[in-house]
Design a protein around this nucleic acid. Structure first.
Lengths: 344, 344
DNA sequence: ATGAAAGCGCTAACAC
DNA sequence: GTGTTAGCGCTTTCAT
C-alpha cells in the first residue's frame, strides 16, 4: 500500500505554489509570507511529505552524518564501556544539530581498514570523521591529512599534529590520585602501566612518577609493571605485585579494566581490599562502579569528550578553521571503596 | 588543494568511453570487454575517482545503510555491554555486504522519539531498521507496521506479530541454570526477576518455576523478588534475600547486571561466594567475566543475534518475504566461579 | 515575496 | 559490447 511517497513537487502542486517555495518552508528560510507558509505546511501535513535525504545531500553537498571510527574488541575485553560512553556523548550533540552518526569501528583486532575509513568521506557518506584510539594509526591520520579530510581526534595515541583534538587532563588525573594515596599514608605505591607508545600511557606514568618525587619519595622501579588493556593483564600484574616479599600498600592502574583485574588478584590471594591494599583505576567506565568493593578511580568525562568532538566537527563543517584546536576537559577523582589508609 | 573530486563523467572522458560504461565497470556489471575495462580502471586510478554515495542512492533508491534503534542508558547502568555486542555482530555482517550502520539510540530514558526513528526510513537515510528492547515500544512497532517499513526485531519485549525477529532460547537458558543449581544440591533457590511486562522476563521466570516443579519442588513465593535492570536493584534484592532468617542457598538473576549487584550485597554482608551462597546471572555480558568471583551465567549469543538480525534485514532488502520469520539462537551455560555445591 | 531553470552524480531503460 | 536519454528529488543561482 505504501505508494510512492510524496515529493516536494507534489506538495508544491497541492499548495498551488512553486517548488522553491516549499523548499523555503521546509528549510525555514526567510522570504515566505505567513499565509503561504501555512498553506504549504498544510499540504505537507496532508500528503505526509518527508524530505528525501539522499536527494538533499546530492544537491546540497552535505551528508548530514558524522563518522565514528572506534575500536571494538572482538572479545569485549577492552574499552567496551569507554566506546559506548563516547558514542553517547557524540550522539547527543549530533542529534541536537539534526545530524546522524555512522559507525565505522575497527572490529576484529586485525589491521585497521584505512582505505574504507577514508572512503567514507570521499564518497560523501559522512561529512567528517571522529577518530578514537587505537584506531588513530599513522596510516589513517596520514591519509586524512594528505587528502585534507575533516576530522577530529579524541585522546590521540601519538602526536596529533595540526589535527583538531579533544583530550583530558591525563597527567593531572594520575597526579591527583597519587597525591591522594600519599595523603592516606601510602609510601609503597605500585603503578601498572600500559603498552608502550601511547600518549595516555606516557602521561599517566609521568604523572605518577613526578608527583611521587614531588612528595619526596623516589619511585621503586620494581613497583612499576607493564600491563596491557585487559582484565587478564591486571590479574597477572596484580599477582606479580602482591606476591612480592615486600608488596605495595597501594596499586594504581592506568585503566579501570586493569584495576578490576588487580582487584580480582587481591581477592584470589585472600587479601582484603582496601584494608590490606588499596587499588585505584583510571577512566571511571561503568565497570568501575560494579566491582566489589567499588573502584576508586579517575573520572574521564567520556561522554563530554564525545560531545566536544562532535562539536568541533560541526564547527569545521560550518567552515571555521579549527586546525590546531585542542579542547581539554578536566578529570576528577572519584573515591569509592577500594582506597583507604595505609595498613599499620 | 582538494579540488572538486572526479565524477564518473570525468572518468568517461579520460578513458574515451561513455558514462554508462564507467558505471558498468564500477558496479562490475557484465558487458564490457576486457580491454575497455582496463582502460576505464586505469582512468579511475589516475583520477582517484570515488563514487558519490548520495548520488548513487538518489538514482538507485537504496540507502546502503541499516538503522539500529537501541537503548543507551544515560548513566551507563543497563545493557551497555549488551548493546555493544549486538552492534558488533550487526556491524560485522553489514560490512561483509558493503552496508553501513547508522545509530539511532534512544538516549535519555525519556520517551522514545518514535517520529524521528520512523523518519529515518521515510527520508531514505536507511533501508531498514533493527530494533532492540526496550526501544520496541508499541508506538514504534505500530508505526513501522502501519507504514510498512522494513524492520527486524531482536528479542522483542512484546508480541512481535508478523515482524521478522531474532530471539534466543530464554526459557531454556534459565531452565538449564536452575537444573544445574538443583543438581548441585540447592533446594532453596531464589529468583530475582525484572520489571513486569517484557517477554524475556516472563520466559525466564517461567523457565525457573517450571523446572523447579519438574524437579519436584514447589517454588517459595518469598524467594521470588522483583528487581529491575540495574546493579543497584541487584544490591537491594540481594540484601532483602540474604537478610532473611531462612536465606536461599542460591540466587538466580534474570540479568548479569543484577547478579553483579546481588554479588556485591553478599560481600557486604560478609558472606563468601560460592561457599555460603551461589549466584548466577543471565546474558554473559562482559561484566560477567570481571566480577569477583567471576559470574556463572547463561550465555546469550549477542553478537550472533546482531549478525542474524542484519542478515534478515538484508534478505528483506533483496525482496524476500520474511514476514513472520523467527530466527532462534541457542543459549548455553557458562559456569564460572559463583556457583558451587549447596552448603551443609 | 515568489518562481523558473539548471544542475548535483548517478542508475535505469532502452537503443545501437 | 557500448552509448543515449531520462530522470531520481532536491538546492542553487538568478529572475521577476
Amino acid at each position: 500500500m505504501s505508494r510512492r511517497s510524496a515529493t516536494m513537487q507534489d506538495v508544491a502542486t497541492a499548495a498551488g505554489v512553486a517548488l522553491k517555495t516549499v523548499s523555503r518552508v521546509v528549510n525555514s528560510e526567510a522570504g515566505v509570507s505567513d499565509a503561504t507558509r501555512e498553506r504549504v505546511e498544510a499540504a505537507i501535513a496532508e500528503l505526509g511529505y518527508v524530505p528525501n535525504a539522499p536527494a538533499r545531500r546530492l544537491a546540497g553537498g552535505r551528508a548530514g552524518l558524522l563518522g565514528l571510527v572506534s575500536f571494538v574488541d572482538p572479545h569485549g575485553d577492552a574499552g567496551v564501556g569507554a566506546t559506548a560512553e563516547l558514542q553517547r556523548g557524540a550522539l547527543a550533540r549530533c542529534r541536537a544539530e539534526g545530524l546522524g552518526i555512522l559507525l565505522h569501528p575497527w572490529i576484529d583486532g586485525g589491521p585497521l581498514d584505512v582505505e574504507s575509513a577514508l572512503r567514507l568521506i570521499e564518497q560523501r557518506s559522512v561529512d567528517a570523521l571522529i577518530v578514537t584510539p587505537p584506531a588513530d594509526t599513522p596510516e589513517l591520520l596520514g591519509g586524512l591529512r594528505e587528502l585534507d579530510l575533516p576530522h577530529v581526534l579524541i585522546s590521540p595515541s601519538e602526536d596529533a599534529g595540526d589535527s583538531p583534538q579533544v583530550v583530558c587532563t591525563e597527567r593531572r588525573g594520575t597526579r591527583d590520585m597519587t597525591r591522594y594515596l600519599h595523603s592516606l599514608g601510602h609510601r609503597r605505591i605500585a603503578f601498572v602501566t600500559g603498552p608502550p607508545g601511547t600518549a595516555a600511557r606516557r602521561e599517566r606514568l609521568d604523572g605518577f612518577i613526578s608527583s611521587l618525587r614531588e612528595a619526596g619519595s623516589e619511585p621503586d622501579p620494581g613497583l612499576i609493571v607493564q600491563g596491557s588493556t585487559s582484565f587478564r593483564s591486571g590479574l597477572s600484574s596484580g599477582r606479580l605485585l602482591l606476591d612480592r616479599s615486600d608488596p605495595p600498600t597501594a596499586i594504581l592502574c592506568w585503566l579501570d579494566e586493569v584495576a578490576a583485574g588487580v582487584l580480582a588478584a587481591a581477592h584470589q590471594l585472600g587479601l582484603s581490599v582496601p584494608t590490606d591494599v588499596s587499588i585505584a583505576g583510571h577512566g571511571d567506565v561503568p565497570l568501575a562502579g560494579r566491582t566489589w568493593p567499588a573502584l576508586s578511580t579517575v573520572r574521564q568525562p567520556l561522554a563530554d569528550m564525545g560531545a566536544a568532538a562532535a562539536g568541533l566537527a560541526l564547527r569545521a563543517l560550518r567552515g571555521e578553521a579549527i586546525a590546531g584546536t585542542c579542547v581539554e576537559l578536566r578529570t576528577e577523582l572519584v573515591i569509592r571503596e577500594t582506597t583507604a589508609n595505609a595498613p599499620g
